[in-house]
């Protein structure tokens, strides 16, 4: 009985990694996420400023769509203020417009901004990545964290459903990151500074992917480039 118990323990030690590996191999990464961002800062004047927004991520192995969720009232307000037509440079407003990033087999990125209102797909050259809020990092954008970096760390806990929690100290920032190895994304990232003056939270949840992916709906869009947004 004792021996059996030992065997069971041994089996579980051996099988647990196998189970985990199988999960990694067989399970497909989550193909659609909703990501909520929240940050706050406390100033020396005692004023606490908070900000939150959310984005939808549609993920294929070499394609990523990032779309800010803009409530309808805010969209309407923006459009009411602006005149539309042709390539007018003064009133182009692509605030929160979706980003579509495609990675080729060599790892080269093709970044596009999708202007649904003017029905334009705007090619973004590397020099303009920052202007559209893309830092050029495919992996971090796709996974919300770099899995290779996490491999160098040891999780502090692993939950029953396989979620790995990492505690990371970076400067005066205490970061807690929960990694979903099956879905291949950071489920939550919480960072706060040691003085309690600022904090930041990212929460991702899996959602149902649309039947038709958004990049398949751009057939009649004009092809433009970033210079069309400039005067």
């Amino acid at each position: 009985m004792k021996k059996t118990g030992f065997n069971l323990l041994l089996r579980s030690i051996v099988l647990l990694p196998l189970f985990t590996i199988a999960n990694h191999i067989l399970a497909a990464p989550a193909d659609a996420l909703r990501v909520e961002y929240h940050q706050w800062k406390l100033g020396k004047d005692g004023v606490r400023q908070e900000m939150s927004y959310s984005e939808l991520l549609y993920r294929q192995p070499d394609s990523l769509w990032i779309e800010r969720e803009v409530p309808e009232a805010a969209q309407r307000s923006s459009h009411d203020e602006h005149h539309h037509g042709g390539l007018g440079h003064k009133h182009d407003d692509v605030t929160g417009a979706p980003l579509w990033i495609v990675r080729d087999t060599q790892g080269k990125l093709d970044v596009k901004l999708v202007d649904r209102h003017e029905k334009r797909v705007i090619e973004i050259a590397e020099a303009y990545y920052a202007n559209v809020g893309f830092d050029g990092h495919w992996v971090e954008s796709w996974n919300l964290a770099d899995p290779e970096s996490l491999k160098k760390l040891k999780p502090t806990t692993v939950s029953e459903n396989g979620l790995e929690t990492y505690e990371i100290q970076r400067g005066n920032q205490q970061i807690t990151l929960v990694w979903n190895p099956k879905g291949q994304y950071a489920k939550t990232i919480t960072a706060k500074d040691s003085k309690g003056l600022s904090g930041r939270t990212i929460k991702a949840s899996e959602i149902t992917s649309p039947k038709t992916l958004p990049w398949a709906q751009l057939g009649n869009y004009l092809s433009r480039d970033y210079s069309d947004l400039l005067d």
Partner: peptide
């Protein structure tokens, strides 16, 4: 600044800025 954060000598009166809110 009043948030206790450093800032640059060159700043802009207005603009788009990066996609990230803060």
């Amino acid at each position: 600044d009043k948030q206790g954060k450093p800032f640059t000598t060159l700043v802009f009166g207005n603009g788009g800025g990066p996609r990230e809110a803060t």
